[in-house]
Amino acid sequence: MQQVERTAVTTRFPVSILLFIGILAISFSAILVKWSAAPASIIASHRLLVTVIIMSPLLYKFWPEMKKINGASYIKLMWSGLSLGLHFLLWMSSLRYTSVASSTAILTLEPVVVMVGSYFVFRHKTSFSAIMAMLVAILGAMMIGWGDFRFAGDAWIGDVLSFLSMVAVAIHMILGKSLRTHMSAFVYSWWVFLIGGLLLLIYNLIIGYSIFQYDANEWLLFLLLAIIPTLFGHVLFNWLLKYMSATTVSMSVLGEPLGATILAYLLLNETITWIQAGAGLLLLIGVGLFIKQEK
C-alpha cells in the first residue's frame, strides 16, 4: 500500500471529547446485545443494515465523491467491509462459548496488531514510552475481565473466535486509515457497513435464520444498536482516522471494557469489584499516557 503522510489537520471540537463520546457509544453494544434474544449473526447483520438504511437518505450529497471511487479503492472497501462483518460474526459467536468479559479482554490486543500493521503499511513508528503506556492500558483492560476468564470446557473455542475477530477488526482499522486519506467518513462507513451487513445476511440465509420475524422489542434493539454504538461509535472512529493514527484510535477502543462494566453495573445490576475499579484506573492512565505520547 502507498505510504500515507501524516499532515497537520485540526478539528472544531477537542479530540478528547470526541473520543469519550465514541467510547461511551460503543460501550452500549454489549448491553444491547445482552438484552436481545435474537441469534448473534442476526443482531450483527441487522445492526449494520439498519445503519445503512438510516444513512442512505443523505447519500445524494456524496454522489460526486461516490462516482470518483476507483477500482483499487473498491477492492480495499470490499476487504474492509468483509473484515468488519467477519469481526462481528466471530466476536458475537464467541459469546456462545465464553463470557463477555473474557471475550472483550482478548479484543484489547487489537492496538498491538494495528501498531505492527501500521508500521509495515504506513511506516508509522511508535515510541518506546508509548508502547509502555499501551501495555499498561492493555493490562488494565484484561484485569477487568480476568476474574471471568474460563479455561475449562469449550471456553477455549470462544477465546479463539474472539482472537480471530480481533485480527479481523485490526485489518479493518488499517484499511480504513488508508482509505480515509482520500475518502469521507460517511462514504467509507456506508460502504463497509453495506458490505459487512450483506455478508452476514448471506450467512444467515445459509444457516436458515428468519430475517424479519422478530417482535417490536427486538427491532427497537436493532435500531438502538445502529444509532448508538454504530453511528456514534464506529462512524465517529472512522472520522477520527483522518486526524489520528490507526493505533491511537485502536487504543481509545480499550475504554470499551471499562465503559461496558460501568453500564452493566448501572443497567444490569452487575457488581464491580475493587480489582476491576483499580484496573479501570490503570486502563485510563495507560490510554491517557499513550495519547499524550502520540499527540
Score class of each variant (00 low, 15 high):
T104H: 07
A105F: 05
I106G: 10
I106V: 15
L107W: 14
T108N: 11
T108K: 04
L109Q: 01
L109D: 06
L109R: 02
E110H: 13
P111F: 02
P111S: 04
V112H: 05
V113N: 02
M115N: 04
S118Y: 06
F120M: 05
V121F: 13
F122D: 06
R123I: 08
R123H: 14
T126M: 08
S127T: 13
S127M: 06
F128K: 10
S129W: 11
S129Q: 08
I131Q: 01
M132C: 04
M132T: 02
A133R: 01
A133C: 03
L135Q: 00
A137Y: 02
I138W: 05
L139F: 09
L139E: 01
G140D: 01
G140I: 01
A141S: 07
A141D: 05
A141H: 03
M143A: 00
I144C: 04
W146G: 00
W146M: 03
W146A: 06
G147T: 00
D148L: 00
F149N: 02
F149H: 00
R150H: 08
R150N: 12
F151M: 10
F151D: 07
G153H: 09
G153D: 09
D154W: 09
A155R: 13
A155L: 12
A155T: 12
I157C: 14
D159V: 11
D159P: 11
V160R: 12
V160M: 15
S162D: 13
F163Q: 10
L164P: 02
L164G: 05
L164H: 04
S165E: 09
S165Y: 09
S165F: 08
A168R: 03
A168E: 07
V169H: 08
V169L: 11
I171L: 14
I171W: 10
I171T: 12
H172Y: 15
M173E: 10
M173N: 09
M173D: 07
K177R: 13
K177W: 11
L179D: 06
R180H: 04
H182T: 06
M183Y: 07
S184G: 07
A185Y: 13
V187M: 05
Y188K: 04
S189H: 09
W191H: 11
W191I: 13
W191E: 04
